[in-house]
């Protein structure tokens, strides 16, 4: 109770400061800034991700790299990407046993016994950078948007923190960053891909299970990958235009 009150006072104090800070921040927003990164053609790309279930070993490198690269809080409910472990009895795909201890950040301790007739695999998850994003649809002010190059981004200086987008995302890819009180999610390492680098998760994936792809680049190997594999997206019934393409995704995955 006492800590409740203290928090209340803290918040009240923060509000007084916030209003002052808000007017300063607003000047920055209204001033506007040139939007283009040097040497990057905004209309020349259409970014997507391929995830190969057959290659994921659940090492957690992607989760750790994502948090380090993007300054994501180390809390157990703040993830831009995470890895799930599936344990499915082949006759009962409707009831898979799933876990993701700390999002896979610390890897996965052995939990299941070999030879029990089950199917086991890891599923890395992240924002699907949907082409028809339900989260973008519901944002009341345009603080989250699909960029012209196919990335769903957040404008942290403009986000109200209403959380409607968190509710609208079918994949659970959004969370509120308690430091900024705004929504946070995978940016597909926009600061990297606009400089010709790959994302932090792809950079550190030891098996190449994750690969960034540019659908507008005819030479990108993503085209071959999509052609040569049985590809599935998460929750296709949501018709979100998801651009995280999975190879060999089991039907039990939610």
């Amino acid at each position: 109770m006492d800590s409740d009150r203290r928090e209340f006072m803290k918040i009240a104090g923060a509000y007084v400061v916030l209003t002052g800070a808000a007017s300063l921040a607003w000047n920055h927003i209204v001033a506007g800034e040139p939007e283009k990164a040097p040497g990057y053609d905004l209309s020349g790309h259409w970014w997507a991700m391929t995830i190969d279930i057959d290659k994921c070993i659940g090492c957690g490198n992607c989760v750790r790299a994502c948090k380090a690269e993007n300054g994501v809080l180390l809390e157990p409910d703040c993830f831009r990407t995470w890895v799930e472990r599936y344990h499915v009895h082949p006759e009962d795909p409707e009831h898979p046993q799933v876990d993701s201890p700390n999002g896979g950040y610390d890897g996965f301790k052995e939990k299941y016994k070999p030879g029990d007739g089950s199917k086991n695999f890891f599923v890395p998850k992240m924002c699907n950078h949907c082409a028809h994003s339900p989260c973008v649809q519901v944002c009341p002010v345009g603080a989250t948007f699909e960029s012209p190059d196919g990335v769903v981004l957040v404008d942290k200086t403009y986000c109200l923190g209403c959380r409607y987008c968190v509710q609208a995302c079918p994949y659970g890819c959004r969370y509120i960053d308690p430091r900024t009180e705004t929504v946070d999610k995978c940016s597909l390492c926009y600061h990297r891909i606009t400089k010709g680098l790959t994302t932090a998760c792809c950079e550190t994936c030891p098996t190449g299970a994750r690969k960034l792809g540019d659908l507008k680049d005819p030479k990108d190997p993503i085209h071959d990958f999509l052609k040569e594999h049985m590809i599935h997206v998460l929750k296709p019934e949501m018709a979100t235009g998801a651009k995280a393409y999975y190879n060999d995704l089991d039907g039990s995955v939610r």
Binding site: V166, Q167, Y171, G172, R174
Partner: peptide, 11 residues
Amino acid sequence: FIYPDELQLQW
């Protein structure tokens, strides 16, 4: 199992 980011209620 819940998705990790679903731990806290938003509304």
